[in-house]
Amino acid sequence: MHAAEGGHAAVARLLLDCGAPWNVLSPSGLSAGDLASDDTYDLLLDHALRSELILGTVARRQNSDGPPAENYLESRVSFSEERVMDAESKAVMMAWERPLMEAHARAVCQGGKVLNIGFGMDLVDEAIQRYEPEEHTIVEAHPEVYARMLKLGWGEKKNVRIVFGRWQDVMPQLESYDGIFFDTYGEYYEDMRPGGIYSYFNGLCGDNAFFHVVYCQLVAMELANLGYSTQFIPLPVKDCVTE
Rank of each mutant, 00 (worst) to 15 (best):
H2L: 13
A4K: 02
G6W: 01
A9I: 03
A12Y: 00
R13D: 11
L14T: 06
L15S: 05
D17W: 00
C18N: 12
A20R: 06
W22Y: 13
N23S: 14
V24D: 14
S26G: 04
A32Q: 09
G33A: 10
D34V: 08
L35Q: 12
L35T: 07
S37Q: 06
T40S: 05
Y41F: 15
D42P: 00
L44K: 03
L44Y: 03
H47F: 15
H47I: 03
H47P: 00
I54C: 08
I54S: 11
I54W: 07
V58C: 08
R60C: 07
Q62V: 10
S64A: 15
D65A: 15
G66V: 02
L73P: 00
V77L: 10
F79C: 10
E82S: 15
R83H: 13
R83Y: 05
E88Y: 12
E88P: 00
S89E: 14
S89K: 12
A91Q: 10
V92D: 01
M94F: 04
M94I: 12
M101R: 05
M101C: 12
H104G: 01
R106W: 04
A107M: 09
A107F: 10
V108L: 09
G111I: 10
G111H: 09
G111K: 09
L115N: 09
G118S: 07
M121Q: 04
L123G: 04
L123K: 04
V124G: 04
D125Y: 00
I128P: 08
Y131W: 11
E132G: 08
E134S: 11
E135L: 13
H136I: 10
I138L: 14
V139W: 09
P143W: 07
V145L: 09
M149W: 03
L152Y: 00
G153T: 07
E156I: 00
K157P: 00
R161F: 03
I162Y: 02
I162M: 10
I162A: 02
V163T: 07
R166L: 14
W167Y: 15
Q168D: 12
Q168S: 11
D169Y: 01
D169W: 01
V170M: 04
V170K: 03
L174R: 06
G179E: 02
G179F: 06
F182Q: 09
D183I: 04
T184E: 04
T184D: 02
Y185H: 14
Y189E: 11
D191R: 13
G196L: 11
G196A: 15
G203K: 02
C205H: 12
C205T: 10
D207H: 13
F211E: 08
A220N: 06
M221W: 03
M221L: 15
L223W: 00
A224L: 12
Y228R: 03
S229T: 15
T230K: 02
T230A: 15
Q231I: 07
P234I: 02
C240N: 03
